[in-house]
Write a protein that binds this DNA or RNA. Structure first.
Lengths: 150, 150
DNA sequence: GTATCTGCAAACCCTTTGCAATAAG
DNA sequence: CTTATTGCAAAGGGTTTGCAGATAC
């Protein structure tokens, strides 16, 4: 899932800022990059505790801003009242297609978004850095179930 | 800013569900539709208190899900740890271009997004309901300031 | 009259912070 | 050695909820 180079990038960043590479930070990052899944702090914490690691939530919360600054991780916004994240390094930029019923998430990319960005930059004079597109609907299964319910 | 027809839509919805049209609900909705601005609960609450209305935050929080269900209002996600909303009725669907430095927001629409939605529906078999595109960058002014700082 | 709605305050939940002990460099 | 980092527990801040009185219908 990962060749570990995100750890090197992060070490370099820490060194440059005079911060320290600790066992806890390494464990958390390994865990985040161990799967392709999105995560939130609570489930990451529980997963690590179940594996016998003694990290605290505070350490996870304190690490995340650093991971965002190095662009290894970014925030993802869903509707359930707390923050979700995904690791970004090693994956091309993508958007989300979400099922509102079963919460499944498909990732996709579309070249038209780069065009939209470019036009916006021209039209409004912005320096565009990033975009998030979140498309919501019903997946094939839930769509069917939903129709039957009605 | 508004012809008041959102109130009628909301009354119809309440009646259909056996809920009640109260002075507080009317006041809150009027206030939301009085401007084109995005809002959050706290500033809406303060604004209404300053005008001498005795609504509570609880009533605002309890009203919002109803407004979302009638599609008069929708959630907008920003990075500052609490929810923002915008009223949707009477405005065509739009996306946001935000300045990360001064937090200014431009609204825009782009026909390519409807095409993207259509392709996604075909490709993944989804029934697509909605999308949110949030483009982030630096506005012309902040872009200049930012360059000088460096 | 009956059920919903209100304001208030307490509870809730996610996130941040203060602190003393620990560990990286 | 010095300073950053840790875990813990407490504090914070936005949102939800329980309740008794008020109010739509």
């Amino acid at each position: 899932m990962s060749d570990g180079s995100e750890l090197q990038i992060f070490r370099d960043y820490l060194k440059k800022r005079g911060l320290r590479y600790t066992r806890e930070r390494e464990q958390i990052i390994r865990e985040i990059f161990a799967t392709h899944e999105h995560f939130d702090v609570d489930s990451l914490y529980l997963k690590m505790r179940q594996k016998g690691m003694n990290v605290s939530k505070a350490s996870i919360y304190r690490l995340i801003p650093l991971l965002i600054e190095t662009e290894l991780v970014r925030e993802v916004f869903f509707e359930d009242g707390h923050m979700h994240y995904e690791h970004v390094y090693g994956h091309e930029h993508h958007c989300h297609l979400r099922c509102l019923e079963c919460r499944k998430i498909e990732e996709f990319t579309d070249p038209r978004l780069a065009e939209v960005e470019k036009d916006l930059a021209e039209r409004f004079g912005y320096h565009v850095l990033d975009h998030r597109l979140d498309v919501r609907g019903l997946c094939p299964e839930c769509r069917t179930k939903y129709l039957y319910k009605k």
